[in-house]
Amino acid sequence: MPSQLEELVSFLHSSQPAVRQIALDNLVGFSTGPTAAIFKYDNCKAIEDLKNLSQEKSKVLVQQSVTILANLCDDDQLRKLVASDEEYLEWLTWKICDLENTSADIMCVLLSNLAKEDVITKVFCFTRENTDKSLPSLDRSVFKSDKLIDCLMDCFVKGYDRKLNKYANFDFLSYFFADISRFKRGRQYFIEEQEYDGVVPLSKLLVFTEKYDCKIRREGVASTIKNSLFDSETHERILIDEQINLLPYILLPIASAKDSEIDEEDMFNLPDELQLLPEDKTRDPVPAIICSHLESILLLCTTKVGREFLRSKSVYPLIRELHKNIEDEDVADLCYRIVNVLMRGEPENDQLEELPSKAADEGDGEEEESDDEAVVEVA
């Protein structure tokens, strides 16, 4: 006999709208923790019901069903079940780009959670050329590309602080970007100039490294930058490309106006953006985000051209000041590793073996999850 909760789950596919609403009202609170297992009742039929409910016109139905789906992503089996539905994934991603969508932000949370699965790379294939089914509307005054990934980038960059959609700020797309940059196709996207606007996507994200009123954006962007640097053969181009101008944006979050012991010569070798900082300039308040930027610097140290470039830009004195002025073991360890690489003699070959943890698609799967890699649960 099914339990009362399992019976409640079965009501999600009732033919009566009022019954479905009552079921959702009562089930949201059971979608996290051990009780989430009830959604596996009857061969996980609830997942199909929830996907259908998320496409209803009712704001309440959509919010609750997507919230449950986002929370259920903490379960590997249920997450794979949702992510493997290509048609639903395509609908969800285009729906986020609907600027009238009142549930865009919670859908961004769901998308970022689904991005833990390798099938997320399908988003690079989604375009508006698909006419087999009706897709959510697209405002052509905002979106100039037919590619879904370009439109999501536009949502994130142009839509912060509810500038595009009064119901959404698209912050959680930063976690989605961090996850797709684990894959080589994702890394290539972020560092290559895009045909539709002639801009390198990574350069659009850099300004958010100092958006101190939004930890989610800074955290996701910092991880996206780091993951985009895992292919060492691209480092020279990324560093010297003035259109990207990467280095200042990974140094500014770790710099403070109180770093007073950098001498004048070193100061004027720093990138222009770090010279004569305003008196109120502070470091990122989150040590984990500082660590992400330090890992990016360590990745840039893996080639001789990268090390020489960092030395020429007085990165060592900046790292030295950070090490002296912040008390965090992880930060201190990364500072030590960077200083050790920059200040010791050059190895016989150009490549160093020392790397931060590899991107997830290339690693052994046993590393501890960072905050942006973990599934986001919604209260």
Rank of each mutant, 00 (worst) to 15 (best):
L27H: 09
P34N: 11
A36Y: 03
A37M: 12
I38T: 15
N43L: 14
C44H: 14
K51F: 08
N52Y: 13
L53W: 10
S54K: 10
K57W: 12
S58L: 10
K59C: 06
Q64L: 03
V66W: 02
L69A: 01
C73W: 02
D76C: 01
Q77H: 14
L78F: 05
K80T: 13
V82G: 02
V82Q: 08
V82A: 04
A83H: 12
E87G: 08
Y88L: 08
W91N: 05
W94N: 06
D98F: 04
L99A: 03
L99P: 04
T102F: 08
S103W: 01
C108N: 00
C108E: 00
S112F: 03
N113Q: 05
N113D: 04
L114Q: 06
A115I: 04
K116W: 00
E117T: 10
E117I: 02
D118G: 05
K122F: 13
F124N: 11
F124K: 11
T127F: 11
T127Q: 12
T131H: 12
T131E: 15
T131K: 15
D132C: 05
D132M: 08
K133R: 15
S134G: 03
L135C: 03
P136K: 04
P136Q: 02
R140E: 08
F143D: 01
F143L: 02
K147E: 14
D150F: 04
C155I: 00
F156R: 00
K158V: 01
G159R: 08
G159C: 08
G159T: 06
Y160S: 00
R162Q: 09
L164H: 08
K166I: 11
Y167K: 08
F170D: 00
